[in-house]
Design a binder for these strands. Structure first.
Length: 800
RNA sequence: GCGGACGUGGUGGAAUGGCAGACACGUUGGUCUUAGGAGCCAAUGCCUCGCGCGUAUGGGUUCAAGUCCCAUCGUCCGCACCA
């Protein structure tokens, strides 16, 4: 049988669509399976091979599940708000909605040409009002529950995109969108209190099936640490300086203090600081540095000693100097530290450079060379000298601090609250109103969606304002509380808002009364298996777990965690082994591969190319190999003439059914396909298979190459779709043969092979060894000390 | 600095502690052909061709190690003056 993929692929794509086989059935009696892949941002470039790999993985699982009789929900939609569309809109003066719609259509067309079994009846787009109405609804719930607040703080700001970024969006001090250096600016920003959920997000990890690498990344991003807050009084000032430390056991070794240059206490006591000019100069130098310069490049310690302001160590009454230095960050702890140069490397470097005393309080190491951070006997520390380890002395110190009322146990997180507003056009309008009388008031629920108005000019304002601020008819409104004149918030939500709950909307995408019907929610949630990229672990995955947990706490959803199981796929690298990028010119266009080799080949290749979770380079020759394999599959049709089964081949069929099934479950798609290749090689060796065997083969290959499988299925006379034909079963007893080849080792080295009866015991095997001329010669004159026999595998003879 | 993953032929990659290199690519030879960048058949870890060597390197545990343990080197990813 010859296959013309250009004819059969559109043919079956059409049949699948017309028959609605991939539409999930709410409340079906079948067991449910909700599989989710990350919906794409519909960029102008179209699909990337990375999308194909990400979707093909769960696609195979879903196709197998349907054949196993599951009611499968495998939805797809578009995360269609975002900066690239807006930047393109500015350049071409086209409405982002127009561009987005065009891109969505393009993506959808491409996905259909790959033959993915998505349920298109549930398609959603985050930029459509009937979707973002509910994004706004959830935001208002967060607002009502005190999880939205406004604060003027130092924020990450991208000067190029002219937008405030969250901590997650500025990892490594670079803007996530344009990769420019991020700067720190004081700004009024809306925050979501994700830190209030830090512990719940940590604890929730115990109950979900995520790979350790993902759990670890989330844990380190949340960055929980336990320690103590301690108050130091400042000489001649009323206010105390509070610090956070994880090492309260070293309090007796404090020889100076450091405040972040931005610390607000400085301004308060500027009259007492005699070298204020110098302080101001240092502060403005720091402000000019980008986040990248400050944290990555300049490891050399700088700072200024405050003249006229010193501190008192609360445990021993010593007067100690106070510095400002940019190695202390305003955004962590209290923005000030107690410095213990003997036992903290950063403090040690600073003290060495600025000539401050270094007093050891833990025995060990050589503090003339570096700080000693290990454990040991406490010294020079008054009452703590009784202890010889960190744990006990920390406990004793915490007791002491509490008794004296100068400190308390404390917990800190590296994770910061989620800076949530963007000074841009193409996002969900934040449904808040500023009333001069009532303060900030939420837009009433019945007025949702608060639709994004049309504007003439998409350019952000130079004063850091959203383009919406220029539309008076949008800005000016009546306060929902007092009816007086008020102004709308003009910033929009960040990229990650819409995707923080999209998996819930897929359950009930057309509901205009609620974000999701509670009964449907109960039926479908949680998501059974979620696959996506490693790059979303500290953003989307964390944000959506936060929103979902919040919805759970207010009784809107039925599970604390949204995703029961999460997996990820490895990157596809360019043919040169580098990450694909336009500038390197090593980007592979998946549709070009579809055009030249067919969708089935592309799908098979991305799963065959290597370990699914590992990165591997693209290799076009290997694509051809997959094409060749599929042609050989088609050719099976011509040798399906046998009346009776070949016994050895039948046994291999049973083994392969088991292997392919098991491998799909553990995402070992490459070895599943390899097993099918081994089987087909055997089929051609025997050169005759039965029609039943051909049907089994078609079913096994159908999740990978569904178009070819349907075509062959039809040619065998079936009128139904192989997509819903029952998945083949296997018989363990038929997988075994009567004899087996075992390895014979002498002193652990392979010296020969023997074919033995499967039921042979050690004595029988040794008989055969002695009867074998070569093996017997090897053993001649030696004394057999020990024989290890692993039935069906090998025998190892220890002889001297 | 911290956390994680990893290191196997010419290449991508297989191997519940039990025959290293499955499967595929590539290469070589053969066959068919007017032709071959198609198909089919065969060979293919390395060398000094041995009872030889071989999974980054050096040790160790074991009857048996790519797999477990220790050390070293290297690669990739994430976080990072986090107090």
């Amino acid at each position: 049988m010859k296959i013309d993929f250009k004819t059969i692929e559109p043919k079956w794509q059409k049949k699948w669509e017309e028959s609605g086989v991939f539409q999930a059935d709410d409340f079906s009696n079948k067991p449910k399976f909700y599989a989710l892949v990350e919906f794409p941002y519909p960029s102008g470039a179209g699909m990337h091979v990375g999308h194909i790999k990400a979707y093909s993985g769960l696609e195979v699982v879903c196709r197998k599940r349907r054949m196993q009789g599951y009611n499968v929900l495998f939805p797809m939609g578009f995360d269609s708000f975002g900066l690239p569309a807006e930047n393109y809109a500015i350049k071409t003066n086209t409405h982002p909605h127009v561009i987005t719609t065009k891109n969505v259509d393009h993506f959808k067309d491409q996905m259909k040409r790959i033959g993915f079994s998505f349920d298109w009846s549930r398609e959603i787009s985050t930029s459509l009002p009937d979707y973002y109405k509910w994004t706004q609804w959830i935001f208002l719930k967060l607002f009502e529950n005190g999880l939205v607040f406004r604060a003027k703080t130092l924020v990450n700001y991208c000067p190029h995109c002219k937008v405030v970024l969250s901590n997650e969006d500025s990892q490594g001090g670079k803007c996530d969108v344009c990769h420019s250096d991020v700067v720190q600016l004081p700004k009024d920003v809306w925050y979501l209190k994700i830190t209030e959920y830090a512990d719940k997000l940590l604890d929730g990890l115990d109950d979900v099936d995520y790979p350790d690498s993902i759990k670890q990344q989330q844990i380190s991003w949340i960055g929980k640490s336990t320690g103590a807050f301690v108050e130091f009084s400042l000489d001649g000032a009323e206010e105390k300086l509070e610090i956070y430390t994880t090492r309260p056991d070293t309090l007796f070794g404090v020889t100076f203090m450091v405040m972040a240059p931005e610390h607000p206490l400085l301004d308060k006591y500027k009259d007492r600081i005699k070298n204020w000019d110098e302080v101001e100069r240092y502060r403005s130098d720091c402000a000019k540095k980008t986040e990248f310069e400050r944290t990555q490049l300049v490891k050399d310690k700088t700072g200024v000693k405050l003249d006229g302001l010193s501190a008192i160590n609360p445990v021993n009454g010593d007067s100690i100097p106070v510095f400002i230095a940019d190695y202390v960050m305003m955004g962590y702890g209290t923005g000030a530290i107690m410095a213990v140069p003997a036992h903290d490397q950063r403090d040690w470097e600073f003290a060495t450079k600025f000539g401050v005393d270094i007093i050891p309080v833990i025995e060990g190491g050589d503090i003339t060379k570096e700080a000693y951070t290990g454990d040991g006997k406490v010294i020079n520390s008054d009452f703590l000298n009784a202890y010889d380890n960190k744990k006990d002395s920390i406990r004793a110190m915490l007791d002491f601090l509490a008794r004296k009322g100068i400190g308390r146990k404390g917990i800190q997180y590296k994770m910061k609250d989620w800076a949530f507003n963007r000074q841009r056009y193409w996002g969900e309008p934040i449904p808040l109103i500023h009333c001069p009388k009532c303060g900030t008031v939420g837009v009433p629920y019945e007025q949702l969606p608060l639709t994004l108005p049309d504007v003439e000019n998409f350019e952000p304002g130079t004063d850091g304002q959203s383009p919406l601020a220029r539309i008076d008819s949008f800005v000016n409104c009546a306060c929902p509380k007092c009816g007086g004149p008020a102004k709308r918030e003009t910033d929009t939500m960040p990229q990650w808002a819409g995707s923080s709950w999209y998996f819930l909307r897929f359950i009930d995408p057309h509901n205009d009364k609620a974000f999701v019907d509670p009964e449907k929610l109960k039926y479908w949630m949680p998501v059974d298996w979620y696959n996506g990229g490693m790059e979303h672990v500290t953003r989307h995955l964390l944000y959506s777990r936060f929103w979902h947990r919040f919805l759970y706490d207010i009784g809107e959803v039925n599970t604390p965690e949204p995703y029961a199981k999460r997996t990820y796929q490895g990157l596809i690298l360019g043919p040169d082994g580098d990450k694909m990028s336009k500038s390197k010119g090593n980007v592979i266009d998946p549709l070009d591969i579809v055009e030249r080799y067919g969708a089935d080949t592309l799908r098979t290749y991305v799963l065959f190319m290597g370990d699914y979770m590992a990165a591997s380079p693209w290799n076009e020759d290997s694509v051809k190999g997959c094409r060749r394999f599929l042609e050989r599959v088609a050719g099976l049709y011509d040798i399906a003439t046998a009346e009776t089964e070949d016994t050895a081949l039948a046994s291999l069929f049973h083994k392969t059914v088991k292997k392919v099934g098991d491998d799909i479950e553990s995402m070992k798609y490459n070895t599943a396909i390899a097993a099918l290749m081994t089987l087909i090689n055997e089929c051609y060796k025997v050169n005759a298979i039965t029609k039943e065997q051909l049907e089994v083969f078609i079913k096994l290959v159908s999740p990978f190459a569904p178009h070819l499988a349907e075509e062959m299925w039809e040619r065998l006379g079936h009128t139904d779709l192989v997509a819903v034909a029952p998945w083949p079963s296997y018989d363990e007893s038929k997988m075994k043969s009567d004899t087996v080849e075992i390895a014979v080792q002498i002193m652990g080295k392979l010296r020969g092979r023997l074919t033995v009866d499967v039921s042979a015991d050690q004595n029988a095997v040794m008989e055969l060894v002695r009867a074998d001329e070569k093996l017997a010669a090897q053993l001649a004159g030696k004394q057999i000390l020990k024989v290890i026999y692993v039935p069906g595998k090998l025998v190892n003879i220890v002889a001297k």
